[in-house]
Design a binder for these strands. Structure first.
Lengths: 225, 225
DNA sequence: AGAGAAATTTAGGCATCCCTAAATATCTGA
DNA sequence: TCAGATATTTAGGGATGCCTAAATTTCTCT
């Protein structure tokens, strides 16, 4: 495997997380927004990633990028590191849920294979991280599970919360306060432009308005995991 | 506290570890050897460290450097990170003793205050790392304890092993095999140019020859800790 | 003291990864 | 279709931190 830097890791992970399906191309602009850098910087990096031997991405000028198989492998490895670290920080070091992301984001690039393996063993080879995200297997890449954004779920249909976003600590605290956590069943009553109204919120009788900012943190499915 | 990079941390720690007393100057060459870079690179970095506000080192051209109080604080913080991580890796993640150094050396730069605090709590606020080195307190800088290199210990005087070097995995494995670990009492019988002969090795009747390479890994004192 | 050896610094470069500004390519709607 | 809007790339720089080679300073020994 070619050597990867922290910057390279971040690009690969961002491409992975922005590409819904495997064949879908990710735009330079979307990457720039995700990574907090300028689009010009993205272009430069993509050219380097595509020039590596083996290439880490397949890059089409003006069209976008997708991960090569080598890039996909490294990206999933980083995601595995991230999610194992989040669980470790939460379960072993007793971090509050909304603080695990930042620390994991920093450390994920630097832990060794051995560290990864030992933490996984300490945690009992876990399958799910504390936000409800699937922890990919070592080596194997991993398809996204059958979740859809809550924003895309039809009104009236009961939905089970599968996972919540890990990148926004304030939103995460709010969701915890509202008990909107993985495993909970909800029903969308009305969908408004900037919010949805939920009926039958657990432990609450009145309908409940949820801003899009929070809605966008939630992924749901028909059944629990 | 001024921002520090990994490289800056490494320089500060190397200066700390190479300066026996607080006022002693460390030479560019010694730093270059310790850090595995060229002396010219050291000069460049020292000039930057001295130019920081507040300065991290006091640098006298052609004479050497010592840490400023800000530099000393950061250096001891890194040493605390390193030793806490070594103990964590050994006790919690079950790393073999000779593998903890490399991983700790990488991670020490990236863990947060919170991580440091939580690991310390998990370990029960430990005082000594698995090689016998004192873990400095949070914030407080820390004087070196009353240890001397085994190479400087007089023959005939019983000595208690206080600590063993953590940077050489092969030497460390050998010392473990010989049961030359912190707490063990030894006596130097004869000192030769390239080795010492130990008498009364625990569980062994015959005198025992120890190469300087291993001797230099050991620090001793008159009494146990 | 002074010459040669050793240590240190300066000068000039390279790689990484970011930036802004300007050029160019693609997309969209009348 | 084609002009304006949008997206993307190119060109030229900056900071960090490493390198080699060439100066320069300091040390050591006679």
């Amino acid at each position: 495997m070619a050597a990867t830097s922290q910057a390279v890791d971040d690009y690969l992970k961002a491409i992975l997380e922005l590409s819904g399906s495997a064949t879908e191309l990710v735009s330079s602009n979307a990457l720039a927004a995700r990574l907090g850098v300028r689009a010009a910087s993205v272009t430069g990096m993509l050219q380097k990633l595509a020039a590596q031997r083996p290439p880490l991405v397949v890059y089409q000028k003006h069209r976008g990028v997708r991960l090569s198989s080598a890039g996909k492998q490294r990206a999933w490895e980083i995601v595995r590191h991230h999610r194992l670290l989040e669980l470790f920080l939460h379960n072993i070091l007793k971090y509050p849920l909304d603080e695990v992301h930042e620390e994991a984001e920093r450390l994920e690039h630097f832990i060794s294979e051995r560290f990864e393996d030992r933490v996984a063993a300490l945690l009992g080879d876990p399958k799910i991280d504390p936000h409800g995200h699937v922890i990919p297997h070592k080596h194997g890449t991993h398809a996204f599970p059958d979740e859809v954004p809550l924003a895309d779920w039809p009104a009236g249909e009961p939905a089970v919360i599968r996972s919540v976003g890990d990148r926004d600590p304030a939103a995460l605290r709010e969701l915890q306060r509202l008990d909107l956590v993985p495993g909970v069943t909800i029903v969308v009553k009305v969908r408004n432009p900037n919010a949805v109204t939920l009926s039958a919120l657990p432990g609450r009788n009145t309908p409940f308005r949820l801003s899009n900012e929070l809605v966008n943190q939630i992924a749901v499915a028909a059944t629990s995991r």
